[in-house]
Amino acid sequence: MTTYFTKDHEWIRIDGDLATVGITDYAQSQLGDVVYCELPEVGATLTKGGEAAVVESVKAASDVFSPVSGVVQEVNAALTDEPAKINEAPESDGWFFKIVLSDSGELAELFDEAAYKAFVEAL
């Protein structure tokens, strides 16, 4: 499985046609304590770069964008009761949604892990 990253600090892990999306450890560290998140509806069609979810800290709400286009197949319902997972395990248990890719070509425009790491260090 390959993981890609966006300049907006989302990660996307590819498993065939299906991909899992979340926000990066860097993103959660910048947001502070996450208290709530609003997930897309299963079956929703997302476009690359479009608003997919909202993650809230006490004093801020941030939009999460979809790294790719596709149809939402599953969402991480556990986050509704335990938003702290986004802080504790952003790149594993804190995943947001799974999406069926409509155009795997879009992945070419994303960072790989090394490139994202360099991008964050330069911030």
């Binding site: 709530y36 809230e56 800290s57 006490v58 004093k59 801020a60 709400a61």
Partner: peptide
């Protein structure tokens, strides 16, 4: 408060 105007 994230529902409210001063944040959202």
């Amino acid at each position: 408060s994230t529902r409210e105007q001063h944040i959202r």
